[in-house]
């Protein structure tokens, strides 16, 4: 039997690594990958807690977490593609426009 604290330590490490990826990398795809790592740390927490208390709720929570991740990732990836198509960049530093006046030029 794995102690609960060890699973929680691993989950916390994963979450912290995901947060570091989001904060340090400036590519949009890397930011999304860091989000995935963070979601998986949360899922490991839920599953470890569910196994500790011999309860199926942790796995149910992880299933819903997967659903939310899939929905979020589909929309985020199409937004990244639209950004690349319009601005021809994937770096988060270059996204400085709030108003879309690319096609029409400066007014």
């Amino acid at each position: 039997m794995i102690p609960l604290s060890h699973s929680l330590i691993i989950a916390a490490l994963l979450f912290t690594l995901g947060l570091l990826i989001i904060m340090l990398r400036r590519e949009l795809l890397f930011i999304l990958m860091g989000l995935e790592v963070m979601f998986n740390g949360a899922a490991l927490t839920a599953i470890a807690a569910g196994q500790y208390w011999t309860n199926a709720d942790g796995q149910v929570l992880t299933i819903f977490l997967t659903v939310v991740t899939a929905a979020e990732l589909a929309i985020a990836l199409i937004l990244v593609w639209l950004v690349f198509e319009r601005l021809n960049t994937t770096r988060a530093d270059n996204l400085k426009l709030l108003k879309d006046n690319i096609d029409r030029g400066p007014p």
């Binding site: 794995i2 994963l14 490991l44 470890a48 992880t62």
Partner: peptide, 20 residues
């Protein structure tokens, strides 16, 4: 990322959640 996710699947299996 694929490696991390597969390893996490093995972790879930070892914790006792085969469906997940």
């Amino acid at each position: 990322l694929v490696i991390a996710l597969l390893a996490l699947a093995l972790l879930f299996f070892l914790l006792g959640a085969p469906l997940l």
